[in-house]
Structures are given as structure tokens and as C-alpha cells.
Design a binder for these strands. Structure first.
Lengths: 183, 183
DNA sequence: ATGTTTCTGAACACTGTGTTCGGTTATAAA
DNA sequence: TTTATAACCGAACACAGTGTTCAGAAACAT
């Protein structure tokens, strides 16, 4: 099945809307951006917007898609050591910085991370430590990551991704390992 | 200055509005509650609402006030060991559970905690570790607390406040101390 | 050149916010 | 018990935003 060629107008419209949203988010933050703002900036008809996306959030998510795909790829790649979930964090710092998504997308990054961590923690934990629920542990590790990321973005990337990753591991790894191995 | 006696009607109205908001939050979550909902439930005139509070969030905050005052008291109390910020967390777990505020108020708890932690961390850190900004550290410690609290509330308090506090310390203390003492 | 798809933009119904104001009622205090 | 006043009511209003519809214009692929 040869993949359907996409009408130029569709491509163009979606691009305009995504760019407009990006700009507006940088200018005043996602929470304050309205559909009206976006279509004015993009110079696109109101009905056109709703022909493509059912809401602002859907438009936002459409821009997040490439990043998500990249993580998916990375996780299924051979070079990834499944014994150490920590290997993931540096990549994430780097990619999120490059993507410039701002912290709106972080909600989705968090969900993604949580699911991944939960799988791996369930396996890695010895039975006697199930008195600390793996769900709680996964939630903590993912949330901590998001916390550092949020600070990093808020302060406009004052440290390198490598440094941030180092701090993250120093902070989170000891406590987590202690609980996993036997508390 | 003898404290002004409050008109019964004022007391009554504020109470009705706060109760209505509480109920509605439990029923459908803060995000979905409107001013209209609240005044309908409280059976209070629209203009009356705005005579008392300038927005829904202000109404929410007014309910949070007693909790905040309690922390303020605790912190200025003699029995509190200023060398160890960790002593605070158990009280917080207990009080937030009692208050049943849900996670909406957590945003404000976080701000409060952050400010407090930052003060104490700045003093407790040796100079050579300033390569990890104290603001980042405070942000992490506060965020981790909120993360555990969020999970706890979401899962309807499956563990005791004491147990939660124990886990929190086990997770967060090692990494934080390591960085503070010399990384 | 032609048939199809997409875009346009104005109109519409809807939900919610926050303000104003004349009239009513509850309250505190004399 | 009266009375001045402070609080409440509710309807009306202006406003901003959402999401839908539809007929006509424009861009597109072939």
C-alpha cells in the first residue's frame, strides 16, 4: 500500500497552527493561550482549526508525537541496558531541551515514564520489599524527574543536560536502591 | 482593639460557599467546578459570591487558611528542631489527611514548603557544594513530598501517615544529605 | 479542463465570567 | 421595639471563549 500523498494545504495548515501555538506558548504560557489566539496568529479560519484538531490540547499533543516516537525507538533499541532504567534520563533531558516543548508536554512525559518504570521496578524488586508498593516507587522516580525538569525549564536551562542528569541520579538513586534491595 | 463581631449573615454565606465548593470538588474535581455550580449548590446570589471572593481560587484558598496557620504555629513552636527540616514532614502528612483538602491545595503547600526549605538549606550547605543550586535542592525536596502526597490521596490513603513519612525519608534523605555534605 | 478536497468566514447557540443596581431582608444596637 | 445599616437578592448586561454549520471560493491532483 503506497502511502497516500498529503494535500499541501493540509500540511501547510497543520504547520501554521503548530507554529502559532509554539510561539504563543513561549509568549504567555500554555494556560493562557486560546483557540482564538492560535487561529489569529496562524491566520487560519476557525472552522479549519476544528477540521484538523478537536481541541487545543490535541494540537499540542500532535507536536509532542515525534518526541514520543523517539523514546519508543530508543527503548526498543539494542544499545539500551534494560537492567538500568537510569540510562534513560540523560536522553530525556537532552531531547526535551532540544524539543523546547516547555513544561506542558511534561504531563505526558510523566505518564510515559511512569508506565515504563513500573514494569521494570516490578521485576527488579525482591518480594520482601513489597511493603513499599512499586506503584509508589515508580510515581516517585517519575515525579522527581519531572520536578528537576520543571526547575530546569523555568530557569531557562542554566545547567547542562549532563549536569542535570548527574544531580538527578545523585539525588534519587541512593534512596530508591536502598528500598529496592531491602529496607 | 476589641475584635469586631462578625455579622451572622457573612459567617453563614462564607460557610455555605465553602461547603458547596468542598462537596463539588469531591464530586467532580476542582477543575470542573464553576462559580455557577457553587452558588447554585449554596443557594447564594451571584453578586453575593463576588462580594465575598473575587474568584473560585480565592474561595478555595480561604478554606486552606487554617491549615497554613497551623504550620506557621508549628514552625515557630519551641519543640521544633530547626536543625532537621525532616521533622516537619510527618506533621504535614497527618494534617493534610485530616484536612481532606484533596490535591488542589497541594500547590500552595508546595510553595510554602519550598520557601521554608530554601531558607534552611542555604544555611546548612557548605560552600563547595553550591555547584548544586540550593533552589534546585529545595524544589526537589518539596516536589518529592508533594509527589508522595499526591499518590497517597489518589489511592485514598492506603498507608498510614507514619508509614508514608518513613518511606519519604528513606527515599529522599540519603541523596539530599550526600549532596549537602559534599558531592 | 475538471471533479474533488480543503479553506473561508460569518452566523449561531451555548457556557461561563464578572459587574451593576434598585429593591428586600436580616442583623445589631439603641 | 424600633431603627439605621449592612448584607443579600436577582435580573440584566457586556464580555470572552467554545464548538458547529453551511454556502461559496480557492487550491489541488490528475
Amino acid at each position: 500500500m503506497p502511502k497516500q500523498k498529503i494535500d499541501r494545504r493540509v500540511e501547510r495548515t497543520r504547520q501554521l497552527l503548530q507554529n502559532a501555538l509554539s510561539e504563543l506558548i513561549l509568549e504567555k504560557g500554555y494556560e493562557k493561550v486560546t483557540v482564538q489566539d492560535v487561529i489569529d496568529r496562524a491566520n487560519v479560519g476557525r472552522s479549519t482549526f476544528y477540521a484538523h484538531f478537536e481541541s487545543l490540547e490535541q494540537l499540542l499533543l500532535s507536536g509532542f508525537e515525534p518526541l514520543r516516537a523517539q523514546f519508543e525507538d530508543f527503548l526498543s533499541g539494542a544499545e539500551f541496558d534494560h537492567e538500568s532504567p537510569w540510562a534513560l534520563s540523560l536522553t530525556m533531558f537532552q531531547q526535551v531541551q532540544k524539543q523546547q516543548g516547555g513544561y506542558i508536554t511534561l504531563t505526558h512525559v510523566q505518564k510515559f515514564l511512569y508506565g515504563y518504570l513500573l514494569d521494570h521496578l516490578k521485576m527488579g524488586m525482591t518480594k520482601r520489599n513489597k511493603n513499599v508498593p512499586p506503584e509508589l516507587l515508580a510515581h516517585y522516580v517519575a515525579s522527581s524527574f519531572i520536578a528537576l525538569m520543571t526547575w530546569w525549564i523555568d530557569n531557562e536551562y542554566p545547567l547542562s543536560a549532563e549536569k542535570m542528569n548527574e544531580i538527578y541520579r545523585q539525588l534519587v538513586e541512593p534512596g530508591t536502591m536502598a528500598i529496592m534491595m531491602g529496607g
